[in-house]
Amino acid sequence: MERPIRVLVAKPGLDGHDRGAKVIARSLRDAGMEVIYTGLRQTPEQIVAAAIQEDVDVVAMSILSGAHNHLFPKVAKLLREEGVDDMLIIGGGVIPDGDIPFLKESGIEEIFTPGTSTTQVIEYIKNNLKR
């Protein structure tokens, strides 16, 4: 059997809107992936600890509060500090186009904004794994 892709789906920060994260989690499941869902209101430190213990291939974060410029780069930085260089880090949510270049520079490899189809996310993950 082919080994399943493991994905951590996390909601950093304080917003309580997890419908999007759940839709993503469900469609990744249907694409044959193992999705570890960590629930709401996670600190970057908690997300990184979970990603390491679960040894995931992908860290996928969803945010709708507007704090993405603070929280996403923090997760990428903490992972680097732990010596993790083989996890694909992606993010999604209501994120203005103007913020995307900064986020990509900070180590978030792709940003998915409203209107993205779940198929696009699945294809992106499958084509960009780092191990």
Binding site: V35, Y37, G39
Partner: peptide, 11 residues
């Protein structure tokens, strides 16, 4: 059917 899973105990 798909080999996928939602692992949600960490919540």
């Amino acid at each position: 059917f798909t080999g996928g899973a939602i692992l949600g105990d960490r919540i």
